[in-house]
Nucleic acid binder design. Structure first.
Lengths: 167, 167
DNA sequence: AAGATCTGCCGAATTTTATTCGGGGCAAAG
DNA sequence: CTTTGCCCCGAATAAAATTCGGCAGATCTT
């Protein structure tokens, strides 16, 4: 389903999703028309959901990031989904993880300063009656990785990419 | 520093970082040459760090995601930085948060299945002597948000964008 | 208040890139 | 050994990015 050429393309598009198709083709070692077709297929199959700018939160005035663990009581579907929708829409929210374990949500937020962090917790979160418990951790650093490598790939029946002629 | 036009551009580039500059210009209501210049400036100033493809982890065979809280003992700079570098490079790792609070790291991973999750914890993490405590939470869902809106903006001396002539 | 100056926007011309499409090689199937 | 299918390639066309001279409005200067 996903061959080595696809993976190479995904790696490149993680590094720079806006590089020209010519550069992409050169980087992965195929003709531009080939990489164009592969990228189109990856999008159509939903492997690539889209392309996003990577914005420096500090540069747009959000100098403080935090991860907030929240417990919902009772953790009914109704409460979970309702809270998820609500928190996703807050302007402070950068990401939302719905989790198992002792906490139901991990909310990644970015705010202007520590006052903003405090205000988020005591003004926003505690507004919600289903929020039973909150634990805040300041995020000192956040790094993203490039998850494209094959993970203990189960042997698939798919063909490897045809190398064809090279001239 | 960041005016409303910049913010509109950032919002658009969150929706689709690969839309053509013409479309971007139309979406934010300026000429293509103007939006091109703005985007170039945003990149040069470091507001936009780059552009990344949004890859569906499930579609590339990583069916299980988890958030793993790790405590490092002793939490010395040496141990923290060494662990951060090491964990960032693992193929399972999607993101790494360095945090305050009772845990020093939050590691977002994506693996093939629950076996892979178990293996990550007992084979990888416990290999490291500085890892004192590990707590795993399965991630049922992960949503990203679009953090571009102004957050309690301090009044800055920057000029608002000149609207100029419209014809 | 009037002129000078600066900033940012515009639009046409040029350069670069994306996109399309017919054809060929390799591999598996018959 | 022939057929079939898949993937890749490269040239031609269409579309987009990029450059740049010039203008409008705001601010500064005198």
């Amino acid at each position: 389903m996903i061959d080595e050429l696809d993976r190479a393309i995904l790696r490149e598009l993680q590094k720079d999703a806006r590089q020209t198709n010519r550069d992409l083709a050169a980087a992965v070692g195929v003709a531009p028309s080939t990489s164009l077709e592969r990228v189109r297929a990856l999008r159509e199959r939903g492997v690539v959901r889209g392309y996003r700018a990577d914005v420096d939160l500090d540069a747009i005035g959000r100098h403080v990031q935090a991860m907030i663990a929240v417990r919902i009581r009772p953790p009914s579907r109704r409460n979970i989904e309702s809270f998820r929708e609500w928190v996703s829409r807050l302007s402070e929210t950068v990401g939302v993880f719905v989790t198992s374990g002792s906490r139901d949500f991990l909310i990644h937020i970015a705010v202007a300063d520590t006052d903003g962090l405090y205000a988020f917790v005591i003004d926003r979160l505690t507004q919600r009656p289903e929020v039973a418990d909150v634990e805040t951790s300041v995020v000192y650093e956040h790094r993203r990785a490039v998850p494209v490598d094959p993970i203990r790939e189960r042997r698939s029946e798919g063909r490897e990419p045809n190398q064809g002629r090279t001239g």
